[in-house]
Computed example of a mutant assay.
Amino acid sequence: MSQITLIKNAEVFAPRSLGRCDVLVAGDRVAKIDQNIDLPESLGQTVDADGAWLIPGLVDSLVHISGGGGEGGFGSRTPELDVRDAVSAGVTTVVGALGTDATTRTLNELFGKAKALEAQGITSFIQTGSYQVPVNTLTGSVRSDVMLVDNIIGVGELAISDHRSSHPSREELIRIAADARVAGLLSGKGGVVSVHVGDGPGRLSPLFDVVEHSEIPITQFYPTHMNRHESLLTHGVAFTRAGGFIDFTTSTTEEILASGELRASCALKLALEQGASINQITFSSDAQGSLTNFCEQGELQDLEVGAIASLFDEFRRAVQDEGVELSQALQVVTRNPARALGLKGKGQIVTGRDADLILVDRERFQITHVMARGRWQMFDRHVRTARLFG
């Protein structure tokens, strides 16, 4: 028998404000949203939200779920994602990717970790490839990876304008994007190329170049780390005006901020002031990735690990510190990344969509309950998802 849960008296943000509503969950889907729903006690569980905010589960579009290779040598390799960290941060959907190290960190590991996270209760997709060109794949080609492997949704994170990049040519970028696009069309997936953008002077020029000299639409590319500095953000605003999505990274350090990076929340406000559409901006955590601070000569100065909790933290900062309206700020961590990557059923509270839901204490602005695929993974601040070992 399917699990049935009724959440009553919630202030629902879907992410658009729906006002005070009841939400009925049957199995892993939202079954009904209405102002007054009754459920017999014998039929399922009723939870009184008592006016708390009910929001969609967060969609984190860049997480190094299997860990990353630290740029400080083998001793700085970063750990894999703990599912309990994701749950307590309200993240119910993650997109895993490799980064700089595609030699000792492999797509096989990435695939296995994604399947483990799925078994532990959250939704996990992955990208084929890494920073490098030619693209590493599981099956021998980008097209067959996207078409034949169920949880591979695109390519990423491919690096440009970065000293760690393979410096792909226009023709290489066109070929990769074309293969991903066709595979996405044939398989019903996004087929998007997620792009790591460094702090090199080229900024987004390689992507604009591809769009100008090919039939590849700008939405086929999804550049991240666009809050590295204000000039890169301004270039990103131009990208959104042309119809593309841009992503701001929420994990950072005081040292990186001192070097010129903007907090994601601050970057959001600034981008909106410069004329970017709220519908074209997203946040991602870059969790488990290396947070590197290089000097002008390219030497590593500092290294820390990205945290998945930063995603909710920067959403909260956007509302509390930067004055961004709640439903707008919520879009960048729910609906927008789902749209950018073609993740059907994610990022919204809509009848028939996946029951990924979060209750937030509106006074403390803290997560109290997390539901993923119709099951409570955190209830009244207690994480129910168990570690398999220890």
Rank of each mutant, 00 (worst) to 15 (best):
T5E: 03
K8C: 03
E11K: 08
A14I: 06
P15W: 04
G27P: 05
K32N: 07
I37T: 12
I37F: 07
L43M: 09
G44A: 02
V47K: 02
L54Y: 07
I55W: 00
L58C: 05
G69Q: 06
G73Q: 09
G73T: 01
G73E: 07
S76P: 06
S76H: 11
T78R: 00
L81M: 11
R84C: 10
V87I: 10
G90P: 06
T93Q: 03
T93G: 08
T93R: 03
G96M: 06
A97S: 15
A97W: 04
T100C: 07
T103Y: 14
T123F: 05
S124E: 02
I126T: 05
P134A: 09
P134E: 03
T139M: 13
R143V: 07
D145A: 08
D145I: 05
L148M: 14
A159L: 00
S161T: 10
H167D: 12
R170V: 10
R170D: 11
E171F: 09
E172I: 06
A177N: 01
A178Y: 14
V182C: 00
S187T: 02
V195W: 06
H196A: 00
H196K: 04
G198L: 06
G202P: 06
R203A: 11
V210C: 09
E212V: 02
E212I: 02
E212R: 15
H213T: 10
T224S: 15
H225G: 02
N227A: 08
H229G: 12
L233H: 10
G236V: 09
F239Q: 06
G244T: 08
R263I: 06
K269T: 07
K269S: 15
L270T: 15
L270M: 15
I278W: 13
L291P: 00
Q297C: 05
G298S: 02
V305E: 02
A307R: 15
D313I: 08
A318H: 08
D321A: 12
E322Q: 13
G323V: 09
V324Y: 01
V332I: 14
T334A: 11
T334E: 08
N336V: 11
Q348L: 10
T351H: 05
T351I: 04
R353H: 15
A355M: 04
D356L: 06
R362D: 12
R364I: 02
Q366C: 11
A372Q: 01
Q377Y: 09
M378C: 04
F379C: 14
A386L: 14
L388A: 10
L388D: 13
